[in-house]
Amino acid sequence: MAKIFGAVEIDSNRCKGCDLCVAACPTSVLSLQPKEVNDRGYHFAYTVNPDACIGCGSCAAVCPDACIEVYRLVDKNA
């Protein structure tokens, strides 16, 4: 059975920590940094649970700052 692997790259300095990607993610991959902030003082988004990513792009779709890039790999042999 094929298995879907996903990954996101977040431009953490562009991120404003709005939390919309966290809310949009169907597999709870993302979270906001609880303590760390970026250069502009925002608690930026990061992948707290990267293995759950299915590369659906929901986070990137709702991101107002276009700071998420999405990768998706379908492994047919998995």
Partner: peptide
């Protein structure tokens, strides 16, 4: 393995 150009499905326009 996943983060490769050929697997990119969304990038900043």
């Amino acid at each position: 393995d996943i983060i490769k150009d050929e697997n990119k499905v969304y990038s900043r326009p």
